[in-house]
């Protein structure tokens, strides 16, 4: 009887010969064993008839989502140019030609020149590296620190949770830009690392809260109790049962946060406390250009456009991932 069920996705490729049907009536009655085919409320198996995890379901959704594809293409391009900017910009971003100060576009210099006569196109391309580095590193740090601290707080609860929650409240209370002005103005190091460190310091409570919440939600599921009843230890419960079920919101928020960290880097650089020359950064260029907005709007337009596009790409990616991972839409 299961053989003619149109829903059975495993007919054919896997079925080990011998026909299961004969051996299945065990000791029980028909009524007891004939519940073979998966049915009721789920779609027929995918084309390949493979068992699908929720992750592969999400991936299947994402592949069909144009928003996801566009954002991923933009991000891949960004990563590419931040790794190998020389492949599409052959000039030196620091080379200045004051004669060309604030000049418009000309052959070989499609975006024109900035106040110091540097090629805007080249600087936009090279600026991606700083932005992507800050964004990726800050997000990695924030997600790592936040999800570990928040996850443990959510899992163990008690005083550890209480203390951590109060600490994160304190960090939440610090206005980011003001904190950046105070914290970074005393730093003389001109690399990206003080900026990344500052973002991790202020950013982890956001992820910690989300991780804590989703761990608490996951912890209450019966399968965690079931694991405990089997004798599983805390590390198994956390890694095998809770983490895989709690990680989705962290991924979503982390992706969106990546975009905002890039914007924050630009903001801090604009205010003069972020990255400093000679590092090439969109924020620094926007800062330089903002005084000249009437004379040479192209100086502002290109780095600002690149920044907006980047932030947008990450936010779109986060949205798409959230939709794909949301079990309620399933």
């Amino acid at each position: 009887m299961p053989e003619n069920n149109p829903l059975d996705p495993e007919q054919g490729p896997i079925a080990p010969g011998g026909g299961y049907g004969a051996g299945m009536d065990l000791a029980a009655s028909d009524a007891d064993t004939l519940e073979r085919a998966p049915g009721h409320g789920q779609e027929p198996g995918g084309p390949a008839g493979k068992p699908r995890s929720l992750w592969s379901d999400a991936w299947r959704d994402l592949r069909r989502n144009p928003v996801f594809i566009i954002s991923v293409l933009i991000i891949l391009f960004l990563v590419f140019i931040s790794l190998w900017p020389g492949t599409i910009a052959t000039q030196d971003p620091l080379q200045a030609n004051l004669q060309k100060s604030q000049a418009g576009s000309e052959p070989g210099h499609p975006f024109g020149f900035d106040s110091q006569g540097r090629d805007v196109y080249t600087r936009v391309v090279y600026g991606a590296r700083a932005s992507v580095t800050v964004g990726v590193c800050a997000t990695a740090g924030v997600v790592l620190l936040g999800s570990v601290l928040g996850g443990l707080a959510g899992f163990f609860g008690g005083w550890w949770d209480a203390i951590l929650s109060r600490i994160s409240d304190v960090f939440f209370g610090i206005p980011v830009v003001l904190g950046g002005l105070v914290f970074l103005s005393v730093v003389t190091n001109s690399t990206v690392w003080p900026v990344v460190g500052f973002m991790v310091l202020l950013g982890w409570p956001q992820i910690a809260r989300i991780a804590r919440g989703s761990v608490i939600t996951a912890r209450q599921n019966d399968y965690v109790q079931a694991g405990r009843a089997l004798g599983a230890g805390n590390s198994r419960l956390l890694l095998r049962h809770i983490a895989p079920n709690a990680v989705a919101p962290v991924i979503v928020v982390g992706t969106i946060a990546l975009g905002t960290y890039i914007a924050l880097e630009a903001t801090l650089s604009y205010l003069g406390v972020g990255l400093k020359p000679p590092t090439v950064s969109w924020g620094i260029d926007i800062s330089d250009a903002s005084n000249q907005i009437r004379n040479a709007p192209h100086m502002l337009l290109w780095p600002a456009g690149a920044l907006s596009l980047t932030v947008l790409a990450f936010i779109m990616l986060g949205d798409a991932v959230r939709d794909a991972l949301d079990p309620k839409l399933r």
Partner: peptide
Amino acid sequence: GLNPEYINRYPHQFSG
């Protein structure tokens, strides 16, 4: 009373 071939499936592919 379940088909042993379902070993690689995920819970959401089954009914209550």
